[in-house]
Design a protein around this nucleic acid. Structure first.
Length: 870
DNA sequence: ACCTCCCGCCATGCT
DNA sequence: AGCATGGCGGGAGGT
């Protein structure tokens, strides 16, 4: 059914590229379709294997190369698109000809494309080259997997790899079987913001630190301590060993196919999101594959570090990394530790402010406008369906059925042109001959982008201003809060942004999807109970972080590093720091309207199980106190994350109120960069950060106390409970350390802190050295980020950065309105208030986390050399 | 020898 | 049963 339609649609580029000779894959080639053009393939069937089209084709490897090259270079790409593509579609290979020039000789020979030519990264570039970064929503942006596979001459399997990752970033969404819709980067910032928030909730930063610490300790033979920590980690991850994967969805981008949903929480998609979260959360924004793999595995299975598993994870991470690299979100670098060099990736994407999705976050009203626009544009269609279906609640068991029905409706709807947006698309699609339309689209897109950009910056600017004013006064709260929104705010907050899932057996894990309000998109995150646990511990981190940073700072040696890091770090950190327990998206509130959707029953069941486990696990409950913060965190399962501005505002306001107390915000380990292992945050960086930093630091201080308390008292007990082992560790020492520092630091602003702590930390972690990153260009990164953000060249950059920053802070006084509404909406669950669940979950986690926070990650000196990957 | 990661078998689950 | 998805890991290309 749908398929047919699908086929009908012509992708923008589709036809363009023909194929490369890739091996054709082994598989069969089915000649059938042969023509590329025929979009209409048959009915549903997906063309089985790709193409052979080329079968006959003489195609030369060179052609491929060319394509690749073009793909790689934007210029060429654009050029091609404009002129070439058209040609291609018809014929194909004009490119080939051209290509010959360069490559012809040798490559020619290689009849076979070299392995590199077949790399996922290149394939991804080709794939991306076919679609505009910022597609005109009005136009048909459908992607037929089969067609793409054919055109690119690859097996469909490869396309799945790419699409899955893109889907995790909401750059595409599945429409139907074999059919996806291209969203480009319109949703990217939001998605990243959401992921960041979730990552914070999950305390990935802490996890990273833990791992590093472990390693460090191991080196030193601190085995015992290590063991303890492991436990902690494990517990955090999923005490039961459940993994919990979660998938963060955006409102209009939910998975529609049931089948998809069933696997939604698995693998690549989730891995990709988590991987991205690591970058967003870590201060240096450099993540080594090893650490990423450990963390990802950790969640799933506690520790089993089977080598095989580890290897598999690494393989997958490479797959994901290749796609992310193609998106210019990360680049390969090497981290040099004492031990040696390890492959790692550095985030080169836009900086994101926490939660609210990049753009939205901070803003005050101004942003809202913009967002609204976007949302409207971007999300409308999608959202529509989402909205409509769902009732407002979160998931309640009873609701599940409804949900299913709803989903089915959605599908129908989606498939049907009916939805306004889509309909338009459909039309356009029909019309759209690939290129011509494309051109038109591009133009349209450009306009849109420009508008957005211009508007965004403005907003941001405003926000910043506002913040500056507000923030300072409120400093603690604001900084942290705004940064992330997440706010550590206690359970109370959650209601707003997060919907705690009800523990009900049925739907525990069920994802909640908030229908987006028209105004803003909402996000749904699917969490499994386990995760929630994982996430948890609200407090702890902050202290540790500081040290690490400090250490780095001290070590920080290389200016270069610092610079690079700065770019990356700035915003993130703040967020990171904030996240501590809070996580929560809570901040977000969705528009009052939002309704949550339920997750499909399936998931629910799964999750529920996990959830239960979690509960049982919950040994940690004891820590009631933690609950507040924790609860939010814990309940990942339930979070809804509305990105919309409104939400942001509301949350902020809420947060501010609640949080101001500072408890929430404890945040923040602002600067810690657990991930890379090294996180050199230099004072300079801090300075660079500017406002955020200030605010943050104070916050940190604020936090520290809490965290400290938690650590000492709460945590340890909790830990003990959770794990039999209570080990005296270095960790405790570290903790003390950190605490001390904190105290010391408090007065000092971030800057002072960085240096000071570092020194202080040092004792704890011998290693702390700074990491030197050798980035290609410090400056570049930033630029890149921005560029990536906005299609439009120049403008964007500044914006991006500014945005980030602004995003971070949400100091601005929030407008309550949204928040209230939101809160209400959240609460009203059909079944009843969800909150309880949240609480329970929160409890246990809190304990653990804290411990984490305390942990200090020893930093070894890391040197990061960016080598461009390939 | 190690790092990457392509390739495609085959399980899973929807239709 | 057939097909779409995609988990997974063997093993090969690159360095």
């Amino acid at each position: 059914m749908e398929n047919e339609k699908e086929n009908l649609f012509i992708e923008p580029h589709k036809r363009g590229l023909m194929k490369s000779p890739l091996k054709e894959s082994t598989k069969e080639n089915v000649p059938p379709a042969t023509d590329l053009p025929s979009p209409n393939l048959g009915p549903l069937t997906t063309p089985t294997k790709p193409k052979e089209v080329s079968q006959g084709e003489p195609w030369t490897p060179t052609a491929n190369l060319k394509m690749l090259i073009s793909a790689v270079s934007p210029e060429i790409r654009s050029r091609d698109q404009k002129r070439g593509l058209f040609d291609n579609r018809r014929g194909l290979p004009e490119a080939k000809d051209c290509l010959h020039e360069h490559l012809s000789g040798d490559e020619y020979e290689k009849s076979q494309p070299s392995r590199k030519e077949k790399s996922l990264g290149l394939l991804c570039h080709k794939f991306l080259a076919r679609y505009p970064k910022y597609p005109n929503p009005a136009v048909n942006n459908d992607i037929c997997l089969d067609e793409v596979a054919e055109e690119l001459n690859v097996e469909r399997r490869r396309i799945y790899d790419i699409v899955n990752v893109l889907e995790s970033l909401h750059m595409v969404s599945r429409l139907a079987k074999n059919r996806y819709t291209w969203h480009g980067r319109h949703n990217l910032n939001k998605t990243l913001g959401t992921l960041k928030s979730v990552g914070e909730e999950n305390k990935y930063a802490e996890q990273i630190m833990m791992i590093k610490k472990k390693e460090y300790e191991q080196e030193f033979d601190f085995i015992k301590s290590y063991s303890i920590e492991d436990h902690i980690i494990k517990s955090n991850a999923g005490q039961n060993g459940h993994t919990e994967m979660c998938f963060v969805e955006l409102p209009g981008l939910e998975f529609r196919a049931a089948s998809v949903n069933s696997r939604k929480d698995k693998s690549l998609r989730v891995m990709s999101q988590k991987f991205v979260m690591l970058f967003l959360v870590s201060t240096p924004q450099i993540v080594s594959l090893e650490i990423a793999a450990k963390i990802l595995i950790g969640e799933d299975h506690v520790e089993d570090l089977d080598k095989s598993k580890f290897k598999t994870k690494i393989r997958r991470l490479y797959d994901i990394a290749n796609v992310l690299s193609s998106l210019d979100l990360i680049k390969k670098v090497h981290v040099t530790e004492e031990r040696g060099r390890k492959p790692a990736f550095k985030w080169t994407g836009p900086e994101i402010s926490p939660n609210a999705s990049g753009s939205s976050p901070a803003l005050p009203s101004a942003t809202s406008d913009l967002e609204v626009r976007r949302s409207a544009k971007e999300n409308c269609a999608k959202n529509l369906f989402s909205t409509r279906g769902k009732p407002n609640f979160t998931r309640h068991p009873s609701l599940i059925k409804l949900v299913k029905s709803i989903e089915s409706d959605r599908r129908k709807i989606n498939s049907a042109p009916s939805s306004p947006v889509k309909s338009s698309k459909a039309e356009s699609s029909q019309n759209s001959p690939p290129f011509p339309n494309k051109m038109a689209q591009l133009a349209a897109i450009c306009k849109m982008q420009l508008e957005e950009q211009s508007s965004e910056p403005r907003k941001k600017m405003k926000v910043q201003l506002a913040r500056s004013g507000h923030c300072k006064p409120v400093a603690p709260v604001d900084a942290s809060a705004k940064a992330e929104l997440e706010l550590t705010t206690p359970s109370l907050i959650q209601p707003l942004g997060v919907l705690p899932l009800v523990p009900s057996p049925l739907s525990p894990a069920v994802p909640v999807i908030l229908p987006q309000t028209p105004s803003g998109p909402s996000y749904a995150i699917y969490l499994q109970p386990a995760q929630a646990q994982t996430m948890t511990p609200p407090q702890g981190l902050s202290p540790t972080v500081c040290p690490s940073h400090c250490s780095k700072a001290a070590g920080a040696k290389e200016s270069t590093d610092a610079s690079t890091e700065k770019t990356t770090n700035n915003t993130p950190r703040a967020s990171g720091s904030s996240r501590s327990g809070s996580l929560l998206l809570a901040p977000e509130r969705q528009g009052a309207k939002n309704r949550t959707r339920e997750a499909p029953g399936e998931r629910g069941s799964k999750r529920s199980s996990t959830f239960e486990d979690c509960i049982s696990n919950k040994k940690y409950k004891e820590d009631l106190k933690g609950l507040e913060n924790v609860s939010a965190t814990l309940f990942p399962s339930g979070y809804l994350i509305p990105l919309t501005q409104c939400s942001s505002l509301g949350t902020e306001s809420i947060l501010s109120n609640k949080e101001n107390s500072g408890t929430l915000s404890p945040n923040r380990r602002i600067y810690s960069s657990p991930i890379a292992g090294v996180i050199p945050v230099t004072s300079s960086e801090l300075t660079a950060v500017n406002f955020p930093s200030f605010h943050v630091t104070p916050l940190k201080l604020m936090v520290s106390p809490t965290s400290v308390a938690a650590v000492h008292g709460g945590n340890s007990p909790a830990l003990a409970s959770s794990h039999p082992i209570a080990i005296p560790n270095p960790s405790s020492a570290i903790v003390n350390f950190t605490l001390q520092h904190l105290g010391l630091i408090s007065p000092g602003v971030q800057v002072s802190a960085s240096p000071g702590p570092g020194s202080g930390t040092i004792p704890v972690s011998p290693r702390i050295e700074a990491i030197s990153i050798v980035p290609e260009n410090a400056g570049c990164q930033q630029g890149r980020a921005t560029s990536s953000d906005s299609s439009v060249p120049g403008q964007s950059q500044p914006n991006g950065q500014s945005v980030m920053v602004t995003g971070t802070q949400q100091p601005v006084p929030v407008t309550p309105k949204g928040s209230q509404l939101v809160a209400e909406s959240f609460f009203r669950t059909p079944g009843g208030p969800t909150k309880p669940t949240g609480l329970s979950c929160a409890d246990f986690d809190g304990a653990n986390k804290t411990s984490f926070g305390t942990l200090f990650v020893p930093q070894r000196k890391l040197e990061v050399s960016t080598e461009d990957v390939h």
